[in-house]
Structure formats: structure tokens, C-alpha cells
């Protein structure tokens, strides 16, 4: 195994890891605020990506179709929040989890009705091929994916750190009731968080689709496991932690493939989830969450 191969694998790992992180942000933020595993998230972002693909099929320019897909994901996230979560927000945790799953099944069933169960290819908006850099050939597409993901995370963190909405979000993360007592409109903020999660998630899912050149109805389910592994590795509820966790997971998967073969790729994420649960339940960068009854 030469150094060039290893480097290319590393770049691939970072790229796919950043995609996991983009998808994971939606899960992580919702979990922090509502203590809810949003099982519909994977299906919502799949739907947005499918919508973008369909628009491209109608001849809409790629950038506009992707933007529209992101908006579809955001809108759908808000609809799901309104229909399936808000009525049961105060119920014990199992209840919203199940209704989330039900909403996800509806979304994926509708998607299957519209687009069918087959795997479709996704247009390669970023060319494949490699670029020579200091004597090493590096693949272009993963580098571009990584750059896009980094840019999205930079924008996200700027919003979170600098704007009123960002401050309100951090406040709600700490203590929802206190935030409400301070006059933060929680019932407007929570849908907004679902929307942002859907928006970033569709962007991540589109990059995922481009990287593997495949879109299919079940891709949301696959993304769920990976994105959660990323979020847990970094520490659920930590925006930057989710990103770092995603990168680490991507690299770990790439190295597992390089060392043991492609069969072990999916095993890596499960092994990481279990190891994190056993050794460091709050993730690498997380802070302990106190149990409330």
C-alpha cells in the first residue's frame, strides 16, 4: 500500500465524512432540544434530493434544482414537525419517536409512489478525475465535496454564533422552559430548526448521491445510521462535534476499507457507535447530559 493510495483514501474518507456530518447536524440539533430521535429526517432529506433530481430532469438548471430541493427538504421538515411532533411534544419520549417513524414511512412511501423503488443515477455536477498536487494525484470530486461541506458548516456556525436566531437556538438548547420564560418564541424556533436541519441535510444527501452516483428511496435509512454514528462520536448536541465526528467516521471507514476490505465499511460505524456508548457516552466533544424525569 503506497502513500499516494493512502492519501487518496484519506481524502475520500474526509469527503464522505463531511457528508455524514451535514446529514447528522439535523439529527443532532433536534435531539439536543427535544430529546427526540428524529427518525423522519432521513426520509425527508431523501425526498428533497429526489425532488432536486426530478427538477433537473425537467430541464431546470442544476443550481436552481438543488436550491429548490433544499427548500423542499426544509418545508417538509416543518410540515412533519407540525403534524407529527408538536401534538405529542409533551408525551413521554417513546411516543414522538414512534410518530416520527410513522411520518418517515409516509414520506418514503409517497416517494416510492412517485419515483419508484429503483436506484437512479445522479448527475455528476462536479467532475470526477484527479488533480496533480505536489506530485500526488488527488481526486477532484471528494476535495470539492469537502470544500462545499466546510463552507456550509462555516455559514451554519456563523448563523449560530452571530445572529439573534442563533443565540435563541443556543438558549433553547440549554433549557427550553427558561428560554420560553425569557420570551423566546419556541413554537417558531423549533420548526425553524427542523427546516435548517432539512436544508443542510438535503445538501449533504445530494453530495452523497453525487459521490456514489446513486439515488434510491431507502437511502435515507442508510444515511440515518451513518449520520447518527457521526453525531454520537462527536457528541450529540454539539454542532462542531457532529462535524468533527463525521470527519473521523469517514476516515475510519476509509481506513477500514483500505485495511480489511469493503465488507467492513458498514461495520465500522456500528463498532464506533458501540464503542462510544461503552467508553464515552457523551461523545468526544460532548458535555454530560443530566437525566430529567
Amino acid at each position: 500500500m503506497d502513500a499516494g493510495y493512502l492519501l487518496a483514501q484519506l481524502v475520500n474518507g474526509l469527503a464522505i465524512g463531511s457528508v455524514y456530518a451535514l446529514i447528522g447536524v439535523g439529527y443532532s440539533m433536534v435531539y439536543t432540544i427535544l430529546y427526540l430521535i428524529n427518525f423522519a429526517h432521513g426520509d425527508v432529506i431523501m425526498f428533497g434530493t429526489m425532488a432536486a433530481l426530478a427538477l433537473m430532469g425537467f430541464g431546470v438548471p442544476a443550481w436552481a434544482a438543488l436550491a429548490a430541493g433544499c427548500l423542499v427538504g426544509a418545508g417538509l421538515g416543518m410540515v412533519v414537525e407540525r403534524v407529527a411532533y408538536r401534538p405529542v411534544r409533551n408525551a413521554p419520549r417513546t411516543v414522538p419517536m414512534i410518530s416520527a417513524l410513522g411520518a418517515g414511512l409516509v414520506v418514503s412511501s409517497v416517494a416510492q409512489g412517485i419515483w419508484g423503488p429503483d436506484v437512479m443515477s445522479f448527475p455528476q455536477l462536479i467532475p470526477r478525475g484527479s488533480v496533480e498536487l505536489a506530485g500526488v494525484a488527488l481526486p477532484v470530486q471528494p476535495l470539492a465535496i469537502l470544500a462545499v461541506a466546510l463552507a456550509l458548516v462555516a455559514i451554519g456556525s456563523a448563523v449560530l454564533e452571530l445572529t439573534r436566531w442563533g443565540r435563541a437556538t443556543r438558549c433553547v438548547c440549554q433549557d427550553m422552559m427558561a428560554a420560553q420564560l425569557m420570551g423566546i418564541p419556541v413554537n417558531r424556533l423549533v420548526p425553524a430548526i427542523y427546516a435548517v436541519g432539512g436544508l443542510i441535510g438535503v445538501a449533504g444527501c445530494s453530495l452523497f448521491a453525487m459521490y456514489f452516483n446513486a439515488v434510491w428511496v431507502q437511502m435515507g435509512q442508510l444515511a440515518t445510521t451513518k449520520a447518527w454514528a457521526a453525531a454520537m462520536l462527536g457528541g450529540v448536541g454539539n454542532f462542531y462535534g457532529a462535524f468533527a465526528g463525521g470527519l473521523l467516521l469517514g476516515v475510519a471507514e476509509a481506513l477500514a476499507v483500505a485495511a480489511f476490505g469493503s465488507l467492513f465499511k458498514d461495520g465500522a460505524s456500528l463498532a464506533i457507535i458501540v464503542a462510544v456508548l461503552l467508553l464515552r457516552p457523551n461523545g468526544l466533544f460532548g458535555t454530560p447530559v443530566v437525566a430529567r424525569s
Binding site: V83, A84, P87, V88, A91, V95, P96, I98, S99, L101, G102, A103, G104, L105, V106, S108, S109, V110, Q112, G113
Partner: peptide, 20 residues
């Protein structure tokens, strides 16, 4: 059979709200 997941998914949401 094709739409079973979606139909029962919708029932799941409704059940969680009205008849958990």
C-alpha cells in the same frame, strides 16, 4: 402491499396522537 408502509405509517402518527 406497495403502499403498506405509508398507510400504516400514517396510522402510526394518528395512533400516537389520538389512541397511543
Amino acid at each position: 402491499l406497495t403502499y403498506r408502509p405509508g398507510i400504516f405509517g400514517a396510522l402510526l402518527v394518528a395512533a400516537m396522537i389520538w389512541r397511543p
